[in-house]
Amino acid sequence: MEERQAIVFDGVVQSRSSFKLGPVTLGIPEGFITAIVGPNGSGKSTLFRMALNLSKPDYGRITVLGNEMGGEDEHLIKQRIGYLAEGPFKLDDNLKACDKALYYSRWYPSWNVNRYQELLHILGVSDNQRMSKMSKGMRRKFEFALAISHSPELLLLDEPSSGLDPIAWKTMIDVLHRYMGQGGKTILMNTHIIEEVKRLADYIVFVAQGRVLGMYEKDELFGNWFTLYVSGEELTPGRLAELPGQCGIEAVGASSFRVTTGKALDAEEWCRLNGIAISSRQALELDDILAAHLQQDGLGSRVHETRGLFT
Rank of each mutant, 00 (worst) to 15 (best):
R130E: 09
C247I: 13
E269K: 10
V212W: 01
M134V: 06
K218N: 04
M172I: 07
K198H: 10
R239N: 08
L156F: 14
E195R: 01
A251I: 09
F226P: 01
D202N: 08
M180Q: 10
S231R: 14
K185P: 10
M134P: 03
D165H: 06
K218F: 05
C247M: 13
Q182I: 13
I148A: 04
Q209P: 03
Y203P: 00
C247H: 13
D165L: 05
S126Y: 02
M172V: 15
A264T: 13
R139S: 01
G214A: 09
V197D: 10
I249C: 08
V207P: 02
V175R: 11
L200M: 15
A208M: 07
V207W: 05
A168D: 08
Y216N: 02
T260D: 15
W225K: 00
T260M: 14
A267Y: 10
K263R: 15
N190I: 15
G238K: 00
N190Y: 05
N190A: 15
L146V: 10
S255R: 12
E250Q: 11
G137T: 03
E217H: 02
L235E: 12
A264M: 11
R211A: 13
T191P: 13
M138F: 00
I193G: 00
E268P: 08
Q246Y: 01
R178I: 11
S162F: 04
A208F: 03
R258E: 15
E195K: 00
A251M: 12
E268I: 15
L146A: 10
A168I: 09
W169C: 12
Q129M: 11
E159R: 02
A147K: 01
L154H: 01
Q129G: 02
S256E: 15
V197M: 10
L155A: 12
R239T: 14
G181V: 07
A251Y: 02
G232P: 03
K141G: 05
V230A: 13
Y216P: 04
L164Q: 09
Y216C: 02
Q246W: 07
I173P: 00
L243K: 01
D127I: 00
W270M: 06
V175M: 15
L157D: 06
A145W: 00
T227H: 06
M180S: 06
F144M: 08
P237V: 05
E268C: 15
K141L: 03
L243F: 05
N128P: 00
R258N: 11
H150C: 12
Y229C: 06
F142W: 05
K185N: 07
L221Q: 02
Y229L: 08
G163E: 07
V252F: 08
L157S: 04
I167S: 12
A267T: 10
M189V: 12
I167D: 13
L146P: 12
L156I: 04
I204C: 02
Q209F: 03
M134G: 05
T261M: 11
L221H: 01
P166Q: 04
D219K: 04
D165K: 06
G238D: 11
V207T: 14
T227R: 08
Q182H: 13
V125T: 09
G163W: 01
H150E: 12
N224I: 01
C247D: 11
S132Y: 05
D158Q: 14
A254C: 06
L265D: 14
G163K: 01
S162K: 05
P244G: 10
L213P: 04
V197L: 04
C247N: 13
R178Y: 09
E268D: 13
R211V: 07
T227M: 06
